[in-house]
Design a protein around this nucleic acid. Structure first.
Lengths: 137, 137
DNA sequence: TGCTAAATCACCCGAAAGGATGAAGGAAAA
DNA sequence: TTTTCCTTCATCCTTTCGGGTGATTTAGCA
């Protein structure tokens, strides 16, 4: 996080200098403003592309969390796994030999801990955090 | 593929106009060239970030099963994608600028075609068939 | 040009899911 | 031995989902 901002800052600083130089040259040598705009545009576009790719890469390279670091208990992970496999609450309850209410309680806590509002969102987050099998079937 | 280029093209066209206007104003009202450069830079930076993320996303997308082989329409795949990203029907409707009922209809057909009973099951099956991104954000 | 599929939207109704809250037994830790 | 957490279960209530059905418009195809 901090590192990317350092790089970003450095680049911005560097660009300011470049802009200054370009700016004066543009004035002194009477270079057309369109060319100036084009150069600036291309430069920033390139930086933008690089930044975009870097950020996206980082975003998708989240470290695999230990379920316990999120406060998820074994049972909750178990439920989460079945949840992500497309089972209904009732089916999960049957599989784990507990009541429907129990499953609902577990799932409620899973939502809190994963900061999810829906089961599909919980699946999504669990997948991002690699809490569940990559493409479990 | 073609769609992204359309968007890109449109944006470029739009920006050309913006640049033209900015350009003339810069001349007429004697706005400083630094401001012009900054505006151009920020605009292209934004586009660049967007492009970078989009391209990187595409690059990392494994080939997907042909949705048409399952009889899934483009729109249905689109809905399926959002579905798998954890959005509620209402949210999907808002994102696609259609009514909730429309989304429900789409989803019903998706279930039929994927032979799913629940949205979580649809996600599961779509993932198995690689109809959707492996770990789409 | 009539047929078909896609996309859109609506209404009704029951099922499933989710939120809030409380409670109780047991195990582990402080 | 308190305290804390996990697991279990419950009730009440609201929201979301999903099934069924039907309708309209538009675009492509035969």
């Amino acid at each position: 996080m901090k590192k990317s901002w350092l790089i970003y800052g450095s680049l911005m600083g560097f660009l300011m200098i470049v802009l200054e130089v370009t700016h004066y040259k543009a004035f002194v040598k009477d270079i057309q403003i369109e060319l100036f705009g084009a150069v600036v545009g291309i430069l920033f576009m390139l930086i933008g592309v690089w930044l975009g790719m870097t950020w996206y890469k980082k975003k998708n390279n989240i470290e695999r969390y230990d379920p316990s670091k999120l406060g998820l208990s074994q049972r909750e992970v178990e439920v989460l796994e079945l949840l992500s496999q497309g089972y209904s609450n009732q089916e999960i309850a049957d599989k784990l030999f507990v009541s429907l209410n129990t499953i609902k309680t577990h799932i409620s806590k899973i939502y809190q801990k994963l900061n999810a509002k829906r089961r599909t969102q919980a699946i999504q987050k669990a997948r991002e955090l690699a809490l569940i099998a990559p493409s479990s079937e």
